[in-house]
Structures are given as structure tokens and as C-alpha cells.
Design a binder for these strands. Structure first.
Lengths: 176, 176
DNA sequence: GCCTCCATGTAATTGGTTACATGATTCT
DNA sequence: AGAATCATGTAACCAATTACATGGAGGC
């Protein structure tokens, strides 16, 4: 199966429950946005491909021409195979951190402002995760959702703290 | 200038000092690998484009047909313009975290093993950063390099701790 | 009637990886 | 002589974004 990451993401989401392309698009946009993203223009052709390969099948049709898909046995097998393969993760790409490397090209005061803005962004994301965490802990439907969310919480907290510390460093250096 | 992120990364690196395409390729591979990556097959055409646009110029020629490039005044202006623009960062893409969302498809013991392996990877990366940090603190040539490195240290530490905690959670659940 | 959301698709373009191709220099 | 490293480039392909295009259903 020459299915890439997007294909496996779709199989994973459909393994939970049957969904239409539109519903899958919303899942990427909402709960999965900070981990993987995809637009409908990429999702629909990929669903067609998974269908051709027999990894999913159409399980029904809704109103307005909606097509509902389900994972087949082959699809589940492929998902688990992918989950088990361990290859070196391709290096992350972060335009934000790339800019940090080049912050020396800006005046120190402006670089500090950039980092404070960065801190604010991470704090905002942290707050969003925390409020979602509150909802989740009430009835705890899914252990794995809590675990994935915990990664986001720790990561955002660490980055917010870093950005605050880094801005302080630059301000201290500027006032020397 | 319709230059993308790679172009700006090249401008940023060349702003430090003149370099050949080959040297730039190594910088991406070594110091910049965890932030942005690029192969020589992408770098050489991009250099040709920056040259056409007048953002860089050839500053000399080395042995074996090597071409050394320098940023022009226009190039520096474009770099600073890019540094200052603040757009919403495009969501990160992490195949590793995507798999975490789907860990419920594996038996709990295997999911825990996956997380321990994840913990090991982050610890290894953390150790690499720490040893690099030791070298750097001796003569501290560049304040910004220390700051960027600090982000890596905090992030890897947070993710290693998370993975350990998550694996414990799953092991505890499995032995219930 | 108009706006919003639901719902699916294609086309054009950009960004990025892998593979192909060549040659000089240095080290062993 | 052979291997590793330096050095540059092109071609083919895959992945992803943006723009184009269409239509149904429900609320105001």
C-alpha cells in the first residue's frame, strides 16, 4: 500500500466510527489541528484512493449527496501495520523557531517583543487546552484523548515559560 | 518577493556570513535540522532564484567550481521584512503525535512500549542538546544560539517526561 | 430572496523528497 | 587504485495549499 500519512490519519479516524468526507475535514480542523492538518481538497481524492485500494468502503449515504465511509478489515490491518512501523521521525518544521535563530538581525528590544508575543500565543493555547481538559476529566470517555492532551499541555507550558525567560534575557542584555 | 520560507532561511544563514550552496546544505543538516530541513536539490534552484531576484549576489568562487554567495542590501531588507511580519503559524505536523491519537488501536502493553521508546528518543535528543550546551557556554559567542537551544532543551525535557508519565498510566491501567 | 452551513469535487501551483547524473580533490 | 568528501545541478514524483466550481437544505 503506497498510502502516505494522510491516508493513515483517515483510517485512524474512521476506525473510531464511520464518517463522511465533510465530517473528516472538520475533525482535522478541530481536534486534530495542532497535530496534522488537511483540507477537503486533499481529503476527497485520498478517500477515493483508499476506496480503490479496498482499505475503506462506502457504508451508507446521507442527505445532500453525503457519502459515509467505513474501514474494511484490510484497512484495519494496514492501520495497525503503520502504527507498528518505527522509522526515524522526519525533522519538525517550525517557521517560528526558524525566526528565533535569526532574531539577532533585529534590535534587541524588538526581538524581546517578538518573544513576548510568542509567550502570549503559547499561554493562549495552553488556556484552550486547559479548558478542554476540564470538560474531559468529568466523564473521561477516552484514556488516550487525555494522554494526547497532556502532551499538548506540557509542551505549551514549556514553550510559554521558555519564551518568557528568553524575553527577560534579551531585556536584561539591552539594559546593560 | 514571492520567496517562501526556504528562501528566507537561506537569507538568514547568509546574513551571518557568505557561504556556498554546499555549506548551506550542511548547515540545514547539522545545526538547523530540528527546525527546518532542506536538501541540496532544493537549495541550488532556490539560490538561483534569489540571485535572479537580486536578493543575493555571487561574492566569489572557491575550488572545484564552488560558488560563494552574499546577501545584498535588498536581501537584508527582505529578511527583516519577513522577520517582522506576524501571521498565524501553520499548525505543526507530527506523525509521532498523530500515532498517539490512534494508540487505542493497539493492545495497552504495546502502546506503553511505544511511549517508552518515544521517551528514550526524547532523552537521547535532550542529551545531545545538553552536550552542545556545554560547549556553547564556555565562550558564549552568540546569545541567540543559546536562546534557541534553550527552547530545544525545555521542549525535549517536557516531552520525555510526558512520554514516561503516559507509559506509566497505560501500564497501571493494564494491570488493573 | 439571501445567507449560512452542509457537501463534494477538480485544477493550478508551490513546496519538498528521491533519484539521476557528473566531476574534482583529498586521503589511504 | 579506490573510497570518501566536496561540489553542483536536473528530472520525476509526491504532498499540500489555494482557487475554482457546483449544488442542496434550513433559517431569517
Amino acid at each position: 500500500m503506497t498510502t502516505g500519512t494522510l491516508g493513515h490519519a483517515l483510517l485512524g479516524l474512521l476506525a473510531e466510527r464511520d464518517m463522511t468526507g465533510y465530517e473528516l475535514t472538520r475533525r482535522f480542523d478541530r481536534s486534530l489541528a495542532h497535530v496534522w492538518s488537511a483540507q477537503h481538497s486533499q481529503i476527497y481524492p485520498e478517500l477515493a484512493k483508499l476506496l480503490r485500494e479496498g482499505l475503506i468502503e462506502q457504508s451508507g449515504a446521507g442527505a445532500r449527496g453525503a457519502k459515509r465511509y467505513a474501514v474494511t478489515a484490510d484497512g484495519r490491518a494496514e492501520l495497525v501495520r503503520w502504527m507498528r512501523e518505527d522509522e526515524a521521525a522526519p525533522g519538525l518544521r517550525s517557521e517560528t523557531m526558524l525566526r528565533v535563530f535569526f532574531l539577532w538581525t533585529l534590535p534587541p528590544a524588538e526581538a524581546a517583543r517578538y518573544l513576548r508575543e510568542e509567550q502570549r500565543r503559547h499561554q493562549a493555547q495552553l488556556a484552550r487546552y486547559e479548558s478542554y481538559s476540564d470538560e474531559l476529566s468529568q466523564n473521561s470517555p477516552d484514556r488516550m484523548a487525555r494522554i494526547a492532551l497532556a502532551a499538548g499541555l506540557r509542551s505549551e507550558r514549556a514553550m510559554a515559560e521558555w519564551a518568557g525567560w528568553a524575553a527577560d534575557e534579551l531585556d536584561a542584555a539591552a539594559s546593560e
